[in-house]
Amino acid sequence: MPMHIIVRLFASHREAAGAGSVAVQLAPGATAADAYGRARDIHAGLPASTDGVAFAVNREFAKPETQLAEGDEVAVLPPVAGG
């Protein structure tokens, strides 16, 4: 049974993809980094490098290797610049 995951994209990533969110399907055991890879399969404009990029799963900071569960929301966070 594939997992249904929402990948959220922001700032330069959102513009590169032309979308702020991407619905992907992944096999059980897939990680946050895998979710970004699948989003790149759909939106080829997304950068291959995740240098400086942070991940969040369900609005909590998470490591790229964090394993996902059905219905999770993965956010891909490029270098932040608030303030």
């Binding site: 956010a75 490029p78 932040v80 610049a81 608030g82």
Partner: peptide
Amino acid sequence: IAPIWKKEYAADGATWVDD
């Protein structure tokens, strides 16, 4: 750490700021 981004608009174009 706050997930907030800013884009600077100047005469020669717009860029996302990397702080």
